[in-house]
Simulated scan of single mutants.
Amino acid sequence: MEIILKEDIIGLGYKNDIVNVKSGYGRNYLIPKGKGVIASASAKKILAENLKQQAHKLAAIKAEAEKKAEALNGVALVIAAKVSATGVTYGSVNTATVAEELKKLGIEVDRKIITMRDIKKVGDFEALVHFHKEVEVVVPVKVVAENAEVAVAAEEAPQTEASQAEIAAATETAPVAEDVVTETEEAPAAE
C-alpha cells in the first residue's frame, strides 16, 4: 500500500515522501493517526503542486537544518556511566542521555531525531542525528566507567604524611569505641 507521509517518521520516511507499507500498518495506524494519506493519483498531483509552491520554504528549512548540523561538527561526547566489574553498565545510555549531554554543551537537540542502539557496555559508539532528510550528522559517543576516573586519580596520588597521620588517628580511635561498648554492657548487669 502506498502512503504519502504527512510528518517525519524516523525509520520509515520524511514528510511528503511516498512510501510502501503493509496494508494493516497503513489502515490501522498511519491513516487514523493523521500521519499519512493513501497515495492515489489525485493525492500525488496535489503533493507535486504543493512541493512546487513550497520549494523556497523547503530550501530555507534545509538551510536551517544545515546550520544546526554545523554546530554538531567536531562534537564528541564522553559519557560516564556506572559500570560493573565485567564492563557492563548499570542501565543503558540511550537517546535521552545523548540529548542531555548535548544540552549541557549548549546544543538543543530533540531526542526523537536521534537514532542509536541502547549502549549497555563501555566503548566507542555512534549516534545519528536526523535534522532533515538530506542533513544527518554522526556524533561519536564514548562511554567510560564512572569509577575508573576516581580509581586512576587515587592511584596517581601518593600517600603523604598527612594521609598517613589520618590513618594512624583512625586506628587510635578504635580502642575508645571498645571502651564504650564495655561500659554499656556493665550498665544492664547492674540493674
Results as ranks from 00 to 15, higher is better:
M1S: 07
E2Q: 15
I3Q: 06
I4P: 09
K6W: 04
K6A: 02
E7F: 00
E7I: 00
E7C: 01
D8G: 05
G13Q: 06
G13S: 05
K15M: 08
D17N: 14
I18L: 08
V19E: 14
V19N: 12
N20E: 14
V21A: 07
K22G: 15
S23I: 07
G24C: 06
G24L: 08
G24N: 14
R27V: 00
N28A: 05
N28D: 12
L30S: 10
P32H: 02
K33L: 04
G34N: 06
V37P: 12
A41Q: 15
A41N: 15
S42Q: 15
S42I: 09
S42Y: 10
K45E: 15
K45W: 06
K45P: 04
I46M: 12
Q54L: 05
Q54W: 03
H56Q: 13
H56N: 10
L58T: 01
A59N: 12
I61D: 15
K62P: 00
A65S: 07
K67T: 14
K68R: 08
K68D: 11
A69V: 05
A69N: 08
A71C: 05
N73G: 01
G74I: 01
L77I: 04
V78G: 10
I79N: 08
A80H: 09
A80C: 06
A81Y: 08
V83P: 13
S84Q: 11
A85I: 11
T86K: 09
G87F: 05
V88N: 14
Y90D: 13
G91D: 13
G91M: 06
V93E: 13
T95Y: 07
T95M: 06
T97C: 08
T97G: 05
A99T: 02
A99G: 05
E100V: 01
E101G: 00
K104E: 11
K104M: 01
K104S: 08
L105Y: 03
E108A: 09
R111V: 01
I113R: 15
I114Y: 09
I114L: 13
T115H: 04
T115K: 02
T115C: 01
I119H: 03
I119C: 04
K120N: 07
V122G: 10
D124R: 10
D124L: 09
F125R: 04
F125Q: 10
E126F: 10
E126Q: 14
V129T: 13
V129R: 05
V135G: 08
V137S: 07
V138A: 13
V139A: 00
P140S: 11
V144F: 10
V144T: 13
V144W: 06
A145S: 15
E146R: 08
N147Y: 11
N147D: 13
A148Q: 15
A148Y: 07
E149V: 02
A154Y: 10
E156V: 01
E156L: 04
Q159F: 02
Q159Y: 05
Q159R: 11
T160G: 00
T160S: 04
E161T: 01
A162R: 00
S163F: 00
Q164W: 05
A165E: 09
A165L: 07
E166L: 07
E166K: 02
A168P: 01
T171G: 04
T171L: 11
E172V: 03
T173C: 04
T173K: 14
A174T: 03
A177E: 15
E178V: 00
V180C: 06
V181K: 15
V181M: 09
T182F: 09
T182M: 05
E185Y: 01
E186R: 02
A187Y: 09
P188H: 02
A190P: 09
A190F: 10
